[in-house]
Amino acid sequence: MLRLFAALVLLTSGCSVNQPTATSAQALARVEQLIHETADILTPKPRLESVPSFEVPSTCWDEDKSQDQIIVSRAYWLRDVPKSENMSISQQVRAHWEAAGHRIVASGRAGNPDLSGESQPDGFTLTLTWAEGDNLYLGAASPCVWPDGHPSE
């Protein structure tokens, strides 16, 4: 796992448009790792329920990258957590991300549990999002990657 992570860091950091990247499978493994490591530290322990709309790769948003690159993401509803615990969950997530060396880039206004972060050193997007009905979901998304790790010829 450490070897995969090291390769992923090297391949996703500082790449120009035609340089190799992590593959979509490597990016997915890192996304899942980030989400599950975070969920595993939460109390009360949530039951993760996949958000299907995040299961399809999306086109790279970075205008400096090729439109043939993709972003791999996943998100999970945090089920079986009392709504009264939403702020506590947010505080736990923040503490975990900071302890792991990730960077917090945004947080919700007072009383709002939303958090956004960036994994370090590989630049994956991290999110804890409050949604209608006082529900939370935890997600992660890769930087832009080539599906097979290298540009098509």
Rank of each mutant, 00 (worst) to 15 (best):
L115Q: 02
K45Y: 01
A141C: 04
L128K: 05
Q69N: 00
L126R: 05
W77C: 03
L126E: 04
A131H: 02
A75K: 10
M1F: 05
A100R: 05
Q19V: 04
F5A: 12
Q69E: 15
D114Q: 13
K45T: 15
S24W: 00
V72F: 09
T23M: 07
K45M: 14
I35P: 10
S24T: 08
R74G: 01
N112C: 02
G133F: 01
W146F: 06
L136Q: 01
T125Q: 12
E98F: 01
S16C: 10
W130H: 15
F124N: 13
P147F: 04
S73E: 11
W61V: 13
S88Q: 13
N86M: 05
K83F: 01
V93G: 08
W146Q: 07
D134F: 01
P46S: 01
G117E: 02
T125I: 12
S13D: 06
L28G: 11
L8G: 03
Y137W: 10
L48Q: 09
S88A: 14
H96P: 00
V81A: 09
D80Y: 05
G108L: 08
S73R: 13
S50N: 11
T125F: 12
A99E: 13
L28A: 14
P113C: 02
H150T: 10
V9N: 11
T12H: 04
P20C: 05
L28Q: 12
E49D: 03
D122R: 06
E132M: 06
Q120L: 03
A7C: 03
G139M: 06
K45P: 09
G149E: 04
T59Y: 06
S84N: 12
A75D: 14
E37M: 05
P143Y: 04
V72N: 05
E55H: 01
L28T: 08
S90D: 03
H102T: 09
S116N: 13
C60A: 03
A27G: 09
Y137C: 01
E118R: 15
R74V: 00
S119E: 04
W77A: 02
V93K: 01
R79V: 12
P143D: 12
A131N: 10
T12W: 04
V17D: 08
W146G: 09
P82D: 09
W77F: 10
F124G: 11
G108K: 06
S119I: 10
P151Y: 11
V31S: 04
P44N: 08
S142K: 04
V56G: 00
F54C: 05
L136E: 01
G101P: 13
P20R: 08
C144W: 02
E37W: 05
S152N: 12
T59P: 00
W130R: 11
V17G: 07
G123S: 14
P57W: 07
F54V: 00
L138C: 14
Q92F: 12
N135E: 12
G14C: 07
R103N: 07
Q19N: 15
A131V: 10
T21D: 09
I71Y: 00
E118F: 00
L136I: 05
T21G: 06
Q33R: 13
S88T: 14
D62W: 01
F124R: 11
L4D: 14
L115C: 06
G139V: 04
D148G: 05
T43K: 15
Q19E: 15
Q120K: 09
A27R: 09
D122H: 07
I89F: 01
R47M: 08
D122T: 10
